[in-house]
Design a protein around this nucleic acid. Sequence first.
DNA 1: CCCTTTATACTCATAATGAGCATATTGTGG
DNA 2: CCACAATATGCTCATTATGAGTATAAAGGG
Lengths: 351, 351
Amino acid sequence: MAEAPSKPSIQSAAEAAMRADKAVVIGLNAAIVTVSDYEPKILVVPHDEADGTGGWDALPFGPFNPMQHRTLEIGLRSWVQEQTQLELGYVEQLYTFGDRGRHSLEIEQPGEHVVSVGYLALTRSHDETMKGAAWRDWYQHFPWEDWREGKPPIIDQMIVPLLREWAAKQSDASPEELARGKRRDRMRLCFGIDGVAWDDEKALERYELLYSAGLLLEAARDGRPNAQHLLKGKAPQLGRPMQFDHRRILATAMSRLRAKIKYRPVAFELMPPTFTLYELQKTVEALLGLHVHKQNFRRLVENAGLVERTGRMSTRTGGRPAEQFRFRREVLNERPAPGLRLAPSRSRANS
Amino acid sequence: MAEAPSKPSIQSAAEAAMRADKAVVIGLNAAIVTVSDYEPKILVVPHDEADGTGGWDALPFGPFNPMQHRTLEIGLRSWVQEQTQLELGYVEQLYTFGDRGRHSLEIEQPGEHVVSVGYLALTRSHDETMKGAAWRDWYQHFPWEDWREGKPPIIDQMIVPLLREWAAKQSDASPEELARGKRRDRMRLCFGIDGVAWDDEKALERYELLYSAGLLLEAARDGRPNAQHLLKGKAPQLGRPMQFDHRRILATAMSRLRAKIKYRPVAFELMPPTFTLYELQKTVEALLGLHVHKQNFRRLVENAGLVERTGRMSTRTGGRPAEQFRFRREVLNERPAPGLRLAPSRSRANS
DNA sequence: CCCTTTATACTCATAATGAGCATATTGTGG
DNA sequence: CCACAATATGCTCATTATGAGTATAAAGGG
């Protein structure tokens, strides 16, 4: 009954290249993450648009030149290396955004379209001396994501009330949003209300929720009607905004990294060659934005075979000296999915 | 110490558009999956190149026209709808490939570059009447992935011996591959040898392993030296090859879907409105390529709150009639990660 | 009415997990 | 030197999740 997917649609790739309306430029965005002083840091570059977003952080960005680099990742590594001298360890593709409205201030020339491919990269080195670029604590952009000291006050003081208001007001809701309590459910699941457990991996969903609720400066900048008040009044802001959709890319990176850490030994990309279990734990906690039970963390790491003792003791910092461990790289060849299987808190998840 | 990521690199997006060497065409590839008769099917279109790959299946492909569609997904849905009349339920971006060598037969014109974005889509409808397009059992492309009837014979009869040969021969190994037993470890982990458990989610890794080992026709077509013998002799083939890197995209889709099914209720996208638990189980088993314990599957599905009884009984097919269930869509609003948490078999995983 | 076939309900041993207690090893300030 | 603070590390225990099996129910066919 249906029309066949016509073969021409395949061959048309060739013709399409000739047609300007389909040609685009590929941009590569890198969310480069490190952890220092037990804080996750994201590499940002300043930018100065005359559009009111001057001063907003941006993620490093570079074009992809297919003539020069065989793959997207090679292209990314190349310009990151050139511009920052950073040694990227782990690199992972996140998502490709093709939104026409991405550069929302109509800075695009007619006929120009940037499709951007987001990448997550991890690095151990974190010199503070890169001119122009800087390491920014990622929780400055996402203050609601750091639960290490308990629930961040911003959630109950600002986010929940504002979201409740948004959920109550149905006037600006889209058709499918109007389903009874849809908005309320979304906020319950995202922010762990009414007995729903906090899920550290939902960083992206939370960002998107706040964006649709018009609570972020990016939403105002993009012209979302329900966010315009942010520009007028001196409304308090929810986290530091970023250029373009970079905060969204960062949220994607957070979600992905928090998930990955649990079934791949990526955390070790951020550790020095030897470390104490305490240091490892603090690094993981920093990324997850959560506290974990110390003794159980140790048990987990040890009988997952992820580390081995070095015999050396650390110069202690207060109490009994801790032993230094090293990452057992062999584990990659032994088990199918080695990682810090930190199960989502079962408490309250099921009520 | 490092150079700043220069702001110009950001603004250069604008100039870059003008430079032909950076302009590319975005192609969208769709892995459209359905399940009928308890077999996973992939929508393929024929193609006729005069390059020897005529007759190989291809995934439906369409260009992305940024003037016409706001986002990549909208663009994808649009041409899929147009060409196939299929109603896509779940759609998810998989990966973006920018390899210059993607269209390996140098069919690219100079100055033309296709970056392709792969998508996974699920649909319930599976008319057999689409002209040109056809539903192909996906295990025809990946015979080693179907363990429902036990370990597929092709593994022990062909794959393992050929991989052992490849692992033993170090002559064509890349520098980092030369590490003692690297290749052997890779095959152990991928194909579950020596007590390593089979991991259904490693479909992509297995495909890539077979490709690098030169055992797939795609590798031969791409000019990999270690695969050239496939073209000469009448060597038996490992699964049906596909055009371009489409089999790789399909492998990505399989891996992603098999993983996703365990923490998101995507399986229901493939079910009719009401179904018996047996039908649900068979569908899941088809996707995973595995048998699951019937009673435990039932327990899992039921106390995860994923389904609810309808009271209606099915017209049985042999024994006691089974009750019809329906998907409890509300579960999406209740639990953070509802899915069929089929844990990886613990047996043999840890020896 | 027995037998086959499938559906569904329970049981049970084992492993994984969350939480806490106990002990060890350091430095510090009387 | 000793009590004490601080941290590391080892161990126990209750609870839950999981894999595997047994038992019973409800149909149709001879």
